[in-house]
Design a protein around this nucleic acid. Structure first.
Length: 674
RNA sequence: GCCGGUGUAGCUCAGUUGGUUAGAGCACGCGGCUCAUAUCCGCGUUGUCCGGGGUUCAAGUCCCUGCACCGGCACCA
């Protein structure tokens, strides 16, 4: 039996897994399950990357031993993966003995090859950041984050002769065009290789958390080098030669597009140095953007994507991620679209099809269907075409096209039912054979579609197979079982709706505010663009201080404001608004105007000038010192020759005087309102 | 600064090597059916394929150029 070994990136454990990491695991799992379906002896490995300084620090912050903290996180991670039905065969942690042994062995081999040499690394080091700083990053010689003077540090480091492997890597890329896909990633790396490589530091001095250099316990192997080696230690490198022999080289590394350099330059060079085979392929998937990310935090009614998976079962989420996102490109998750796909693909099309097949089989044939004569073969033909296309697309990791192929069968079956009208056939006994055949063909279509969907929605597909008469262990189902079977008797089972329709959105979506905040100050249009939030951030360098403040958003060109009317908007639209608390510093009436007041306000990070149309209701003097709410990301507009950089929120009854929005308690300027 | 990607229907996107009237889903309109989860089926509306120039018998697709947005590198991992 051919083997297939695939891996995902191992995850930093300084925060809990989120939808971005889940996306990678689910996509990889779809591939793993597909490979099993296609008859490969598949080995699917995931893991946690635990030797980061951030992890060490985080654990200490929580007053825990680093290893105990990692143990806890490992449980959390694996529980999430299990709840998403990710079918991992092994889970490796970089603190495990098998990993440590293998890492040291590999470094020893690299050293023996003459590729590791001793050197020094020196530079400005900020103790608070625990990081070296570039000269140009310093502000007046101080760390820009901590405002402290960094130390000039010189530490002994071991270096890897990465530069030596440039030509070999180029040759490898040349000889293996599919080594890195999609192509855009390959091109990036090729350009990088063409521009030359520097040797890299592979150790850190003076740290205890990590794996020691084989001959120098005072130095610890750099965490990235440590992490990459998991792909071989997980299959027994240095500990289980037979297992290693069986699995290595890996057939596929599934990783995020941001870490292709590590996987396609450093990692292969390390393997070359140690005389080991290179992985056959690396797939750099895109990022998942989460438009509605913030809403889950602000509105308790709206659930986190992982919670959604737990609520509806993992399959709707799995289907969304594979079918709606071109694998390799960036994708986007919004609740609106998620519900849309759930209702259309699952509730209306597949789920309803399963329901009607079950109902008709029971009503017309007491639950047992068998061929009734000559079939017109139309559904068989569609199923054959779809299954062929499916395999072709899945082999190329075009997961979205594979999923679409399976759903072509579902669509065809629904159409076929409408065209043949089994309920009409049932009224006339002379059509009994024809009715039997129609029911049989439709049931068979459902069976084939379910086989193809097993990798994508494993739990539901198994249930569907059961309902259309599949007996035996679903684990034994193979791709060839998607071949059309025109014979045999099937017992069709009726059951509850697999996916009840989501009727109206729960929560805040339909709520209409009693008094709608109105525009009282200038601003010709509403800012249309929302800064996207990639939820996938692989590295753990996310110090709060280094995260770009939302204030860094630049003003985007505003699209013309649609005449809003009473059209409902989605929560996504709402989250485009950057509302901030501001404190009025000065206020003065705009000369020659009736309603306008010019305000300068403190928004925490900066001062802004606003023009507001509230002069009829408020004397300028009474506004000074007052805390208000403003639209922070509104495109500037000129009113009476004064540029207004934002808008003040107030309740504005028709024809009445506006009343400013305020707070019950004290709120510091700059706080976001949402 | 250097390099790359994207820009297609109201929305989300697909369009493989240039080849007939540019597609899908959603949304919208009309009609049909009743087995089914107010589901399903059919028909229909909507497009300066970002702008401009060029190559060609033929361009969404190739070349040049402009604009907008995103990303990689330059500056670590």
């Amino acid at each position: 039996m051919p083997t297939f070994y695939l891996t995902t990136a191992i995850d930093y454990v300084n925060s809990r897994p989120h939808l971005g990491t889940a996306y990678e695991k689910i996509a990889a799992d779809v591939i793993a399950r597909y490979k099993r379906l296609a008859g490969f002896d598949t080995h699917f490995v995931m893991g946690n990357d635990e030797h980061s300084q951030n992890v060490f620090r985080r654990a200490r912050e929580l007053g825990e031993e680093p290893l105990a903290y990692c143990d806890r996180m490992a449980v959390e991670f694996t529980e999430v993966w299990r709840s998403l039905d990710v079918s991992l065969d092994d889970f490796i942690r970089t603190t495990e003995p098998r990993h440590r042994t293998g890492v040291q062995e590999l470094v020893r081999r690299m050293t023996a090859a003459g590729d590791i040499y001793e050197g020094h690394y020196e530079g400005w080091y900020c103790v608070s950041c625990e990081a070296f700083k570039q000269e140009k990053d310093l502000v007046e010689g101080l760390c820009p984050i901590h405002r402290t003077r960094p130390d000039w540090l010189r530490e002994k480091n071991y270096f890897f002769r990465l530069s030596k492997y440039r030509d070999a890597l180029l040759a490898h890329f040349e000889a293996h065009p599919d080594f890195l896909v999609p192509e855009i990633r390959r091109n990036e790396i090729l350009r990088l290789l063409e521009s030359g490589l520097d040797d890299i530091s592979v150790s850190r001095a003076g740290q205890a958390w990590g794996i020691a250099m084989p001959e120098d316990p005072a130095s610890v192997i750099y965490v990235w080098v440590d992490a990459l080696i998991n792909y071989i230690t997980a299959v027994g490198y240095g500990t289980d030669p037979a297992a290693f022999e069986r699995h290595w080289p890996a057939d596929l590394h599934v990783i995020g597009k941001d870490i292709t350099r590590f996987h396609c330059v450093i990692w292969p060079a390390m393997l070359m140095s140690a005389g080991l085979a290179l992985p056959r392929q690396v797939f750099g998937h895109g990022w998942l953007h989460l438009k509605g990310e913030k809403m889950s935090k602000s509105l308790g009614t709206i659930v986190d994507p992982l919670e959604a998976a737990q609520r509806f079962g993992p399959d709707p989420l799995r289907l969304y991620l594979t079918k709606e996102i071109t694998f390799g490109s960036d994708g986007d998750f919004t609740w609106d679209r998620y519900e849309d796909r759930y209702n259309v693909d699952l509730a209306n099309n597949l789920g309803n099809l399963v329901s009607r097949v079950g109902a008709m089989a029971e009503k017309y044939r007491d639950g047992v269907v068998r061929p009734g004569g000559a079939s017109d073969g139309r559904l068989a033909e569609t199923a054959r075409e779809a299954a062929g296309s499916y395999a072709h697309q899945m082999d190329a990791f075009a997961l979205e096209r594979g999923a679409a192929a399976a759903f072509r069968i579902v669509d065809a079956a629904n159409e076929y039912i409408a065209g043949t009208e089994p309920w009409a056939l049932a009224r006339d006994a002379s059509h009994a054979d024809r009715l039997s055949q129609v029911l049989f063909d439709v049931a068979e279509s459902v069976r084939v579609a379910a086989v193809l969907l097993l990798p994508i929605i494993p739990r539901s597909a198994a249930e569907i197979l059961r309902r259309v008469g599949h007996t035996g262990d679903v684990q034994d189902v193979r791709l060839r079982d998607a071949d059309w079977r025109g014979q045999g008797e099937r017992r069709i089972l009726k059951g509850d709706a697999l996916w009840p329709r989501i009727v109206a959105a729960e929560g805040a979506r339909n709520e209409v505010p009693v008094s709608r905040p109105a525009i009282v100050a200038g601003g010709a249009g509403r800012q249309e663009r929302q800064r996207n939030h990639p939820v996938e951030q692989q590295n753990g360098s996310g110090d709060a201080a280094s995260a770009a403040p939302a204030a860094a958003q630049e003003a985007a060109p505003a699209a013309p404001a649609p005449a809003a009317g009473n059209a409902q908007i989605t929560i996504d639209d709402v989250m485009k608004l950057d509302l901030r608390v501001a404190k009025v510093l000065t206020a003065e009436k705009v000369p020659n105007s009736r309603k306008l007041v010019k305000l300068s306000v403190d928004v925490g990070s900066e001062q802004r000038t606003l023009v507001a149309g509230i002069a009829e209701a408020y004397e300028p003097d009474t506004l000074v010192g007052r805390t208000i709410v403003m639209v922070f990301n509104l495109k500037p507009a000129k009113l009476m020759g004064i540029e207004s950089n934002g808008m003040v929120l107030a309740a504005s009854p028709d024809g009445g005087t506006p009343t400013l929005v305020g707070f019950e308690g004290e709120v510091p300027p700059g706080t976001r309102v949402r």
